[in-house]
């Protein structure tokens, strides 16, 4: 399902955090949003998932106007892996993932719910964690469980806010490989430019709340945009192990 963002502007007091942002995410693609700290990446993702109402602009998932739809309707359209780690408060993994299937009070957990939760857990390689307490998991396990929760929503769009934060390199690559293998439309906020280059179908670079570049990864992450956005020298060269394009950065001399 397509995601279309038009003219989104967000201001906190007098500071404009996002200015007239446009973004088109084609059906089934994986789009990475990158940018320096404070460039508005997470704010943009919050706007898309309905956690923050913009001062101006529109967000559509398919034909649905996200800003006008009910929270329940929006949750059926997109799953979210939020940036902030949850306060588990003693809940078990099964309970955490089950929150994805919100019911009205008169509805029971059905076999379809159990199947959706089970297959999402399996997809994320987390099925063996069902009985564990969420707060006893490692960082990598937690993110896999939160990804499973997002998938268990059964939504056509998936939004991830810096899901690789605080993970060791192996766990980062494992998580990205799972996200890469999904068929849903994905928007992922990333810090690591090489991860964006390697895993995304298209990349959007934000700088001071504006879209600096958007398009094919190698074009959007050209040395010119990387210098303008991050003040870094960068080069794209074949990865010594995989042979695929690899982005490296260095502070200017």
């Amino acid at each position: 399902m397509r995601v279309v963002i038009r003219d989104v502007t967000v201001a906190f007091g007098r500071t404009e955090v996002l200015r007239e942002v446009d973004l088109d995410v084609p059906d089934g693609s994986m789009t990475a949003i990158v940018g320096p700290n404070g460039s508005g990446k997470s704010t943009l993702l919050r706007v898309i998932y309905g956690g923050l109402r913009p001062d101006r602009g529109t967000v559509h998932i398919g034909d649905t106007d996200v800003l006008a739809a009910s929270p329940r309707r929006v949750a059926a359209l997109r799953g979210v892996v939020p940036q902030q780690q949850p306060a588990a408060g003693g809940l078990r993994v099964a309970d955490v993932v089950a929150t994805a299937r919100q019911h009205r009070w008169y509805e029971r957990e059905t076999a379809a719910d159990v199947d959706a939760i089970g297959s999402a857990m399996k997809r994320c390689g987390a099925a063996h964690l069902l009985h564990r307490r969420f707060d006893s998991l490692s960082g990598g396990e937690r993110q896999r469980v939160l990804l499973a929760r997002a998938l268990a929503q059964g939504a056509p769009v998936l939004l991830l806010d810096e899901p690789t934060n605080h993970l060791d390199p192996g766990a980062q690559l494992e998580l990205l490989a799972i996200v890469r293998s999904l068929e849903t439309t994905r928007i992922i906020v990333l810090h690591d430019l090489d991860h964006a280059l390697t895993h995304a179908d298209q990349v959007t670079v934000l700088h001071e709340g504006r879209v600096l570049a958007s398009g094919e990864p190698e074009q959007a992450l050209s040395p010119g945009t990387v210098r303008a956005a991050f003040g870094l020298h960068s080069a794209i060269a074949p990865h010594p192990l995989t042979g695929r394009p690899h982005l490296t950065c260095a502070l200017p001399e």
Binding site: A75, P82, D95, Q102, W105, Q153
Partner: peptide, 18 residues
């Protein structure tokens, strides 16, 4: 059920449609 989601966090509650 919504309380479980809310106990995890505000963003977690919004994520699942509370």
């Amino acid at each position: 059920h919504p309380l479980n989601a809310l106990a995890l966090g505000d963003d977690d509650a919004i994520a699942v449609g509370v």
